[in-house]
Design a protein around this nucleic acid. Structure first.
Length: 865
DNA sequence: GACCTGCTGCGGTTTG
């Protein structure tokens, strides 16, 4: 028998003439039976309604006759998304559904144009459904009497959970949920459910009740774990269900293969040489997104298209994280309205509003991971039944093999995992103060709640005690500074009494820290976006630079704003920004090695491999093509010195660590100083003396993981890495105040104060939890210690093939070009040297990509003037 | 403070 609620929503669904997917029914049954869990569904599959409609049905079931007049006197559903921009669209869709079904409900977003107005509105009257972000949830927990807000709560939905999992924002969500679970009293529900026997008591509250928690996630490698993390350690596994939308999304992936791979760039990362081929695809398509890996690459591509295809002026736009929000919103709306044929962007368009008109996606350069590529491909053909069409554009020859690897990985269903963060004490400190700011907390109760989260399952009472000390007395070290005495204890209740401390804390809730940036504004007013201080410092008044796709003349800097006016010059430098340096994911790297093994075995079924044959033949002829049981090292002498090249194909971060490690181990045999270069495929050690590599290889400990941590400590400046990590940790943990909005504390001061804190802690309190965390984070994220270990263990089982080579091989070339740049030569010399290297080699076109981008007016990439 | 190629994401305006 179908319940009243189900009847109502199904009828509504039919009216809309929407197609109903099988998983939506499964979701409905599961939800109405009272389970919590994870919904695994791709974007554009109607996943929002798959959860929202059963929730409505549940409510209607409770008020079958009066639901059309039934308002509720409190918050029933909390919907959390990582992207503020998503809340408005979802709100609209939900409101429309409620209106049409006849529920007199109010669907609201917490974040919006006027936070103050919204906050006031929330206080007056709670909406039935609230859409918000993890940060806003914590802001709510920082309000007096916050439990009142949640005492009617029935379900919390965490949308795009895969985006949050693996980040400190994810830990924030875990902590927030641990609180909500314990706030919501028993509820009765489930009247008229189809299968009564499936009704199960919920773990929180008494009897048939408690809050349900549902995550929505795209496909990742560790979905089961994602559900565990979301629900916490105290959630009985039998009450968790996974609902999978087995939708076969049609994907059409193609690599763009250069006409002559031998003459294609062997090195480089811009990929402009394939611009004509890309533009042919753009011309054939209705709307195309071109994804680039960096913001400056977006600017370069945009500029190059404007230069070479002026007819695109007006129907092309750019989108990346340093552009002004207004501009970005405009681009998104224009995409929606089918007013644009082409948008050049970075991952700022990975998520977001649905762009139906987009039918083609182009990825320039390595997407670095299978899941990211899938996500981007999915931006095209974004409606049920449509085909997602994506092209991969290699920026240098060898990268083309990644195209084959991507296709293979997708076919085999290999996706990256998102590893949840553990024991992030900075986030916990912030959360403790958050609770102290509102109603206060009791240590034992909070400890129990916190320990129920996945992130803090292993926290000890002693560690928790240290954190309590820290927020009340500044811990061992900072006790004499009033500034760190935030929380007071009254009869066992930890509470913030100072209004000033409370306000400052509310201002700094969140786990995202960012570089201080300089706003770019027209002299006439109007903002374009932001660039970094270091870039501005290179500019002199009158200089031209390209930003937001325009030629700008720099006038002056005043109060963190760079004023510009329009320039007619077609030449100008393009800013670069400091950002993350993502390595190739271990999954994609593994499939890449598989492909290489196929190549070494002469298997030529992929078009990419066939195209690359001349390159691989040359590699074989000059050196060797390693099979999966072999590890290739190339040794070679030049004027610069003695080069050693290693090819673990394990991503650049691992290579960086391994290079330092091996350099250190070699230097124990013979003291030498090395210079290091690396890319995602391998690394180079360069020294001006002979390297006793044979001797090093004879020793079984060369690639060993014994003494790994010790050797890493000796070979890398671990202190420096941890110090840099500590900067963010200190921000999140509230050790430094970044200033009131609009009047940020100067970066230099912050730098100095976090650095000082790090030193003080290291000296006087070596067991400090935040310092320990800084080292752990450096090890896990900067060095990818886990992967490094695995790579060393793999190499230890492989046959080492040491080849003495005459000239750089196709494998070596891109790494060595990287090292040329690193030596801070002028671009001209770099270009000459690349050309020389290429000539000495008989490969004419080798450096063409770099040449082109240096010669083209307007895409000059000289450093300085 | 270091990177030189290097992503994304959220908050919040008043007190000492």
């Amino acid at each position: 028998m179908t319940s009243k609620g189900q009847q109502v929503i199904r009828q509504w669904y039919r009216q809309k003439n929407w197609q109903q997917f099988p998983f939506q029914q499964e979701m409905e049954t599961t939800y109405l039976s009272g389970y919590s869990g994870l919904l695994n569904a791709p974007t554009g599959s109607g996943k929002t309604f798959a959860l929202f409609l059963p929730f409505l049905a549940d409510f209607i079931n409770k008020h079958p006759d009066t639901y059309t007049t039934q308002k509720n006197n409190g918050l029933l559903m909390l919907w959390i998304t990582p992207l503020r921009a998503l809340t408005n669209d979802i709100r609209k869709a939900m409101q429309e559904a409620c209106d049409e079904i006849g529920l007199p409900w109010n669907i609201a977003t917490r974040t919006g144009d006027t936070p103050a107005a919204e906050k006031a509105a929330l206080k007056r009257k709670l909406p039935e459904v609230l859409l918000t972000t993890p940060e806003s949830l914590h802001l709510m927990l920082a309000q007096k009497e916050y439990p009142k807000l949640f005492n009617q709560l029935q379900v919390v939905v965490i949308d795009e959970w895969h985006e949050l999992l693996g980040t400190k924002r994810g830990v924030q969500v875990e902590l927030g949920l641990s609180k909500l679970k314990n706030l919501t009293p028993a509820l009765s529900f489930g009247e008229g459910v189809e299968k009564q026997e499936e009704k199960i008591p919920l773990p929180f509250g008494k009897g048939w009740g408690g809050v349900r928690i549902w995550g929505i996630s795209a496909t990742i490698g560790n979905l089961e774990q994602a559900a565990e993390v979301l629900l916490g350690n105290d959630f009985p596994p039998e009450r968790i269900k996974m609902v999978r939308a087995n939708l076969d999304k049609k994907l059409d992936i193609r690599s763009i293969i250069p006409d002559n791979v031998e003459n294609y760039s062997w090195a480089g990362h811009i990929g402009l040489k394939l611009l004509p081929e890309v533009m042919e695809i753009v011309a054939r398509s209705k709307t195309t997104l071109i994804f680039t890996n960096t913001r400056s690459q977006s600017e370069i591509w945009y500029h190059a298209i404007l230069d070479n295809y002026p007819e695109y002026a007006g129907i092309m736009a750019m989108h990346h994280g340093s552009l002004d929000n207004e501009l970005r919103n405009w681009v998104e709306q224009a995409l929606h309205a089918e007013a644009l044929k082409l948008v050049v962007c970075t991952s700022s368009l990975d998520l977001g509003v649905d762009f139906r008109p987009v039918d083609t996606v182009v990825q320039v350069g390595s997407p670095k991971g299978v899941a990211r590529f899938m996500q981007r491909a999915g931006r095209s053909g974004h409606h049920p039944g449509a085909v997602s069409r994506a092209y991969f554009v290699p920026t240098h020859s060898l990268e083309l093999l990644e195209g084959a690897a991507l296709k293979a990985a997708i076919k085999r269903g290999i996706f990256e995992s998102r590893d949840p963060m553990l024991l992030t004490m900075d986030v916990l400190i912030q959360y403790m103060v958050t609770l102290a700011v509102s109603d206060g907390f009791r240590a034992d109760e909070l400890f129990k709640e916190v320990k129920s989260t996945y992130a803090f399952a292993d926290i000890t009472r002693n560690e928790f005690g240290q954190l309590l000390d820290f927020i009340t007395s500044g811990g061992k070290t900072l006790a004499q500074y009033d500034e760190f005495l935030k929380v007071e204890v009254e009869n066992g209740l930890y509470k913030v009494n100072s209004r000033r401390v409370a306000m400052r804390h509310r201002l700094s809730i969140g786990t995202i820290t960012s570089e201080l940036s300089i706003r770019v504004k027209w002299l006439s007013g109007g903002s374009l976006g932001t660039i970094e201080e270091s870039f501005v410092s290179k500019l002199k008044p009158g200089n031209t630079f390209w930003f937001a796709g325009r030629s700008l003349e720099f006038i002056r800097v005043k109060e963190m704003t760079a004023y510009v006016k329009k320039s007619n010059s077609t030449k100008g430098i393009i800013p670069s920004w400091n950002g993350g340096r993502m390595p190739l994911s271990s999954q994609l790297a593994a499939v890449f090695r598989d492909k290489l093994d196929e190549v070494a075995h002469g298997i030529e079924k992929d078009e990419e491999v066939i195209a690359l044959k001349p390159l691989f033949d040359l590699q074989q002829q000059l050196s060797h093509l390693p099979q999966s049981h072999e590890f290739l090292i190339e040794s070679f002498k030049s004027r610069e010195g003695h080069h050693l090249l290693f090819y673990p194909f394990e991503g650049r971060l691992v290579h960086e660590g391994m290079a330092s490690l091996l350099a250190y181990r070699i230097s124990k045999i013979k003291p030498a100083s090395f210079s290091i270069a690396m890319n995602d495929y391998g690394f180079e050690l360069l020294t001006d003396e002979d390297i006793p590599i044979e001797q090093a290889l004879e020793d079984a400990s060369f690639f060993s993981i014994d003494n790994l941590l010790d050797d890493i400590q000796h070979s890398l400046n671990a202190n420096e890495m941890a110090r840099r990590r500590f900067r963010d940790i200190a921000h999140i943990g509230g050790l430094v105040f970044t200033g009131y909005p609009g009047q940020q504390v100067k970066n230099k001061h912050l730098q100095a104060s976090t650095s000082l804190l790090f030193e003080v802690f290291s000296e006087y309190e070596p067991d400090n939890l935040l310092v320990r965390q800084a080292y752990n984070e450096a090890l896990a994220f900067q060095l990818e210690e886990f992967r490094l270990r695995a790579a060393l263990q793999r190499i230890a089982t492989q046959n080492i093939i040491l080849k003495v080579i005459e000239r750089p091989t196709p494998f070596a070339f891109p790494i060595m070009v990287d090292s040329l740049g690193r030596e801070r030569l002028t671009t001209e010399t770099l270009e000459e040297r690349i050309a020389k290297m290429a000539r000495s080699y008989g490969a004419e076109g080798v450096a063409a990509d770099d040449k082109r981008r240096n010669r083209k007016p307007g895409i000059v990439r000289k450093k300085g003037f």
